[in-house]
Amino acid sequence: MFEARVAQAEILKKILDSVRELVEQGNLDCSGTGISLQAMDSSHVSLVALLLKSEGFERYRCDRSINLGINMQSLGKIVKTAGNHDAITLSSEDKGDVLGLMFESTEQDKVSNYEIKLMDVDAEQLAIPVAEYSVCVRMPSAEFARITRDLSTIGDSVLISCTKDGVQFSTTGDTGSGSIVLRQSSSVDDEKKAVVIEVQEPISLSFATKFLVQFSKSAALNESVTLNLGDGVPLMVEYPMKEMGYVRFYLAPKLSN
């Protein structure tokens, strides 16, 4: 028996919004420690890694580990029908073929029940080693969203160059070029608005703009985002979710000919 209850549907809506455009279907791996999902986009260039820790749920029970193969679009559409403040309980029998969803309004005067058919998802699991990154940039997630959106009007690739002086996002396209530099915040009252740049080694890497735009749509998950860059490893973009866990995106770089 698997059962997980979140106090407010809002967080689940935000999580599904952040991954469902990138990932069509995936396996929710449910175990005693929580729910995780690892899924690549259809072009096998980027990967979403989601972790929802058991302690982040209001109630959590998972007697034996199970994989729930889910169409993320279908799940997203159903969860969207819940009120933001509704409690949501996810459930599945050990050998069941559906994922049950129960929404309860705060006043307990409305209860909605849905079932989603489970599917066999043949997803390749990748072993992602803990990487040592040369650069870690923490910045406001809204700023990251704005930069990627602005540069996407010009070019297909964004070059991210980072030194101790700042991080530069630049692009070139048929119509011209553009670049945006962010400097480390000298003093900021609100830490969430700060730009913090940690550099072991300066680095420059190119990435496909469209994926950066997709990742940046997760801004609702956290006011801050971290970009982790290393030589010879994919970019890792992380949106932490307080006690709940995280959504991480991995993106393979582009290499010049």
């Binding site: 980027s46 990748l126 496909a208 994919p234 393979a252 582009k254």
Partner: peptide, 14 residues
């Protein structure tokens, strides 16, 4: 022009 590398190049399958 830049070549997009596949993610599998970096991470082995389990």
């Amino acid at each position: 022009p830049a070549n997009q590398i596949a993610l599998i190049t970096f991470y082995q399958g389990q």
